[in-house]
């Protein structure tokens, strides 16, 4: 009985963390799905978001949940500028050149964090950290619940943006058929910049949520990049629901692996899952179209 409870506890914890993972992966998925550019600096952008939220809390006592909209807006502008300024000329270049460009950006971002904040772990600590909600015998950390709810809300906003607004629909049109989008007169370069902005805003918001759960250090960046890749491949690259469900799946599998095996083995589980999905269902568990 004790074990069943611990198991249920681990699964709910995994689901809650998985929502934030999902939001992070959503940013990667949106960028890849539209531009076919693989953002190798994704985890680095996430870590910058975590540091900014931490900074807001340290300097002004602003809760990361409150500073989140400002961070998202800032990241949208930065992502827009990055795409418009640096990445656009690389859109039709070979993959390895895009890889090198984003790698250089990643190295810059993570080391600016290292220079400014140092290698030590930085966390947000407040009384609210110890609050919890009880559902029957299950005890849920309040911060995790808040982070998961916020992630769901942001994903909902994103969904509304892509299905209800003119810009969102145009972006999807450009993703479906680049040439036709040009033919009907869409400003594809601007849409691409907008997309990178939206993707960056997503991952920046995910960073602000993640800092309430996990303390940040610069070396997390590469881990998050890999994790985001694992999630979107498992869920299906370019699929929004796939990214969210993939996030949940990886969150739960990490939590369960940490409970049943050693915590240090948890990512082996995720990578094993990644290999299986790549081989058996490369379009992802929840992706409709075959991956190419």
């Amino acid at each position: 009985m004790d074990f069943a409870l611990a198991f249920a506890q681990a699964i709910t914890k995994g689901l809650l963390t998985g929502m934030v993972y999902g939001l992070m992966a959503l940013g990667l998925s949106v960028i890849f799905g539209v531009m076919r550019v693989v953002n190798f600096a994704h985890g680095e952008i996430m870590v910058v978001g975590m540091y900014l939220a931490w900074l807001g809390f340290e300097l002004a006592g602003v809760s990361p949940l409150v500073s989140l909209p400002a961070i998202a807006l800032l990241f949208f502008a930065a992502g827009y500028a990055l795409q418009a300024g640096l990445i656009t000329p690389f859109i039709n270049r070979p993959e390895h050149q895009q890889f090198l460009l984003l790698l250089a950006i990643a190295i810059l971002l993570v080391n600016v964090c290292l220079v400014l904040a140092g290698p030590d772990a930085r966390g947000v600590q407040s009384e609210a950290m110890f609050d919890s909600y009880a559902i029957g015998p299950l005890v849920l950390d309040a911060v995790r619940v808040h982070a998961a709810l916020a992630a769901i809300a942001i994903a909902g906003l994103l969904w509304a943006f892509f299905t209800r607004t003119r810009t969102g629909k145009s972006i999807r049109a450009a993703a479906d058929n680049h040439m036709s989008a040009l033919v009907v007169g869409l400003d594809v370069r601007r849409l691409y910049a907008f997309t990178f902005g939206v993707g960056s805003a997503c991952v920046g918001a995910a960073g602000a949520l993640m800092i309430t759960i996990v303390p940040v250090n610069p070396f997390l960046a590469a881990e998050y990049t890999l994790l985001a890749f694992v999630i979107v491949i498992v869920g299906g690259l370019g699929s929004m629901t796939g990214a969210l469900l993939g996030g949940l799946l990886i969150g739960v599998s990490e939590a369960v692996a940490g409970l049943l095996l050693q915590p240090s083995l948890k990512s082996m589980f995720s990578f094993g899952l990644l290999i299986l999905v790549l081989l058996l269902r490369p379009q992802g568990l929840f992706g409709g179209k075959a991956g190419t």
Binding site: L100, L101, A104, I105, I107, N111, V112, V115
Partner: peptide, 22 residues
């Protein structure tokens, strides 16, 4: 004695090379 500074130069140099000589 600032850790990370070397990597910043390195990243900048990579950026310059990939833009200048892709």
């Amino acid at each position: 004695k600032i850790s990370g500074l070397k990597q910043i130069f390195y990243g900048l140099a990579l950026l310059v090379i990939v833009i200048w000589r892709p």
